[in-house]
Design a protein around this nucleic acid. Sequence first.
DNA 1: GGGGAGAGATGCCGC
DNA 2: GCGGCATTTCTCCCC
Lengths: 248, 248
Amino acid sequence: MDKEEYALLIQDALKRNECIVLACYCTVRYSGRVESFLEFGDRVVLIKPDNVVIVHQPSGNAPVNYMRPDTDIHAFVKRHNLIIKTSNVKNKDFMSLEIEKVYFFNTHKLEDGQSITVQGTEKDMSDMLYDNPSMVETGFTPVSREEQTTYGFIDVFGTDKDGVLTIVECKRFRADLGAVTQLRRYVEKVKKSKGVDQVRGIIAAPKITGNALKMLEDWGFSFKQVTPPMYLQRFDRDQSRLDAFNNG
Amino acid sequence: MDKEEYALLIQDALKRNECIVLACYCTVRYSGRVESFLEFGDRVVLIKPDNVVIVHQPSGNAPVNYMRPDTDIHAFVKRHNLIIKTSNVKNKDFMSLEIEKVYFFNTHKLEDGQSITVQGTEKDMSDMLYDNPSMVETGFTPVSREEQTTYGFIDVFGTDKDGVLTIVECKRFRADLGAVTQLRRYVEKVKKSKGVDQVRGIIAAPKITGNALKMLEDWGFSFKQVTPPMYLQRFDRDQSRLDAFNNG
DNA sequence: GGGGAGAGATGCCGC
DNA sequence: GCGGCATTTCTCCCC
């Protein structure tokens, strides 16, 4: 097919708000938060009805270049190549594709009103600790959850068996140095805000890095190993369900 | 086309290591680091030669679900629907698509040995400060860059006009609380490691959040406003080049 | 829109 | 593989 025809097909599809997919041999130039250039090679281009443009190389998880929603998209032929020139003035983003060859091209009207549901997030973990405070330690009594406005985003906030204010910071995977400094900021905020000397800090996570544990102990905080609600449980103790997933 | 045929086409394309793109009406189920489910709707599926699988809804920048490289991919028909079942045992990741209708389908062999080149990263910014130390402050003398092994990843390390050890932490966009705690960790490490009382800390960035600035000053550090090499310069003062970009 | 924090973050580099 | 960190991070939520 002629490149002029592809340019027209893209223009029509954009007008009809269709999704566009093409595979091609092209360069990619981007200018915005950084400047980047990608020499000629084979790529897949996805243009969505909300005017997102995504460019993928044949390998790798992440797109090599992209434009965020509400991008202006123009397709035309210049010097015998198909040009897709995109700009998002609001984001100060610009991307341009120079396409020498189109391998395949398709468009279709796509509609999808569904939203993904996710379970096993950090929020689920803090809910678990709130509902099962003994998982933190004996005598721990939660007072509030997601104390956002006053002290920051404290996951679980309560008192220990001696009535001392205690802040619990949850991490879903592995607590790192950032988690410790985060906890420390909360503890200091609460100390100042409540005017008390003693506020305990606990990190609850399945694991913690060595440096983070050292810094945690240097600051007088402690680590409580907690397995999040469904983290790897399936794989550790319900092999039959795993098999069902594989073969089902 | 029959769903059995699509299953065969996918199997063949996988064998030939081709890139596969399809638009379809499907559900997506994921189980791994979390569990997620997405009800029937229109999506675009991209399968790459390195066995990455990416699922996009018709809107939004990011994929709604994905599988990382080296995923096992199987396509077959079950209960009149096309199933794409993927698993990555190493990552303990599982994703399954149930496809009721295929809108379009394409495969092609794609090859790309190119790598993207990027300018304007934080590394470029620390290079600029290393080469132009007066941008930090008068009398600043860089000693080393990327002091990685001993103290962490210090961007620029040097001495001020009085010979006091000075650590510069660069941020490409806006420095936040995390940047301040990061700087603070470096300063403390260096103090301890070198056995000196006084080590200065400077954050160099185009802007800084209010809370971060307050914490910075509480800790006796300082902020130096630095415009990164090409951040927005094009837009501010070279309108002609911008127009050139827009018009091709 | 700023600001803070999570994310199935990802990806890179160094040890 | 762990660990620390940048990312055109993105996204959500609250102020």
